[in-house]
């Protein structure tokens, strides 16, 4: 078992993150089923469409609490480095693709993809740190 899974702080993180991600996935499915394409904004459609966003915010909060509550300073530094790499990666993708959208007719990148792109950046950060520290 990875040492992180024995860490109570990490266990608390999983207890927060997993329900939020399950609600996120469920709310996406629910919103896709209940709201027809190009529906007008109404209190009902906005309310349903807000659910996945709120769940996504809860996932980000869980990640922030992990950084705040981690007591092992080295592991916390690693997580912070990963988050910084992910932030740079996501900002780089947003800036580059945004300028491509401005000057060419490439497809528009939906803004809601920024969080998954940031999470992909975490994996890039993990890989980068692993390769660098070998």
């Amino acid at each position: 078992m990875h040492p992180l899974f024995r860490d109570p702080t990490y266990n608390r993180y999983l207890k927060r993150f997993i329900p939020a991600s399950v609600i996120y996935a469920g709310a996406i499915v629910l919103a896709s089923m209940l709201i027809p394409d190009h529906a007008k904004a109404s209190p009902l459609t906005i309310g349903i469409a807000l659910l996945p966003g709120l769940a996504c915010t809860a996932m980000i909060w869980a990640m922030a609490r992990l950084l705040v509550e981690m007591e092992d300073e080295y592991l916390r530094l690693i997580e912070i480095k990963k988050a910084l790499i992910a932030t740079g990666f996501a900002l780089g993708v947003a800036a580059t693709w945004g300028l491509l959208e401005l000057y060419t007719d490439v497809p528009k990148l939906p803004v809601f993809l920024m969080f998954p792109i940031w999470c992909f950046g975490l994996a890039v950060g993990q890989l980068w740190l692993k390769v660098r520290d070998k």
């Binding site: 040492p3 860490d7 007591e71 092992d72 300073e73 080295y74 592991l75 530094l77 520290d133």
Partner: peptide, 19 residues
């Protein structure tokens, strides 16, 4: 020390300077 084994390894190998 109440830290992870990775922390000890990182300090020993000079990859990380402790607080």
């Amino acid at each position: 020390l109440g830290v992870s084994r990775q922390s000890v390894n990182a300090i020993e190998t000079g990859k990380y300077d402790p607080s």
